[in-house]
């Protein structure tokens, strides 16, 4: 833990039209991880997300137009790489990721692990997803477990902490939409390790899920295809 404190940590908060919750999210992070820098990546918001974030003391980087959460998070990774951060933690701007759990994610990185995932399913938590989402989550968990060769429970959680090696890798390849599942395969294929850390999440304070019923089918097909493609894709730099 002490070693973690001496290393530079960046909290990346991707946000698209979250001016209702962004200030509270930034404040919570500041309280729970005072040693970390907070970067809000404003993904082309049309409301006052950027201003609210700046007022609450975060650094703000604004994309010129909405590019999808993957691109926003990757911008954060690029920032972390350029500025020499050792750790980067992704925390969603809608307030569903509890900032109080960030230290536990960071602690998990201490053992030479490249990524720590805040997982809703490792232990039984209070999260009960709607039926179709539950099915999707099961399918991805099965696919990823099969490819990675160990049991993975929560592949879709966006609450993650990355070490330096993973940061650099993900600045090179990171899907622009629904990136979570595919990123795990990318990591695995490049010989990196990730662990799951059980966390209890808050369920949606403001706004709607980025995955509505309408895009649910697209989401399933896109991610499944992406996972299968990621297995046969050439490795970075080879």
């Amino acid at each position: 833990m002490d070693q973690t404190l001496s290393k530079k940590t960046l909290i990346i908060v991707p946000a698209y039209n979250e001016d209702g919750s962004i200030a509270r999210v930034v404040e919570h992070i500041g309280k729970n991880v005072p040693q970390a820098d907070i970067l809000v990546v404003d993904d082309g918001s049309t409301d006052r997300t950027a201003r609210r974030a700046r007022e609450s003391g975060a650094m703000v980087m604004s994309l010129p137009y909405n590019m999808g959460i993957g691109t926003a998070v990757q911008s954060g990774f690029l920032f972390a790489k350029q500025k020499g951060y050792h750790f980067a933690v992704q925390v969603d701007g809608d307030g569903q990721h509890p900032a109080s759990e960030i230290p536990r994610l960071l602690a998990a990185l201490e053992n030479g692990v490249d990524m720590a995932i805040g997982s809703r399913f490792v232990q039984s938590t209070n999260y009960r997803p709607p039926f179709f989402r539950a099915v999707g989550i099961k399918i991805f968990a099965f696919l990823v477990s099969l490819i990675v060769g160990k049991r993975v429970y929560d592949t879709t959680s966006g609450f993650r902490a990355c070490g330096r090696k993973a940061i650099v890798l993900l600045t090179e390849t990171y899907p622009h939409d629904y990136p979570e599942v595919e990123a795990l395969i990318t990591l695995h294929r490049n010989g990196m390790r990730f662990v799951e850390v059980p966390v209890e999440m808050n369920y949606r304070q403001e706004g709607k899920s980025s995955i509505s019923a309408k895009v649910g089918l697209y989401y399933m097909m896109k991610v499944t295809l992406a996972v299968l493609v990621a297995v046969i894709k050439r490795r970075n730099g080879k």
Partner: peptide
């Protein structure tokens, strides 16, 4: 084009910052 556009938006955001 999409990939290039993506990199460009990221560079723009970075430079603006």
């Amino acid at each position: 084009l999409f990939d290039r556009n993506k990199r460009l938006t990221q560079e723009v955001a970075w430079l603006k910052f």
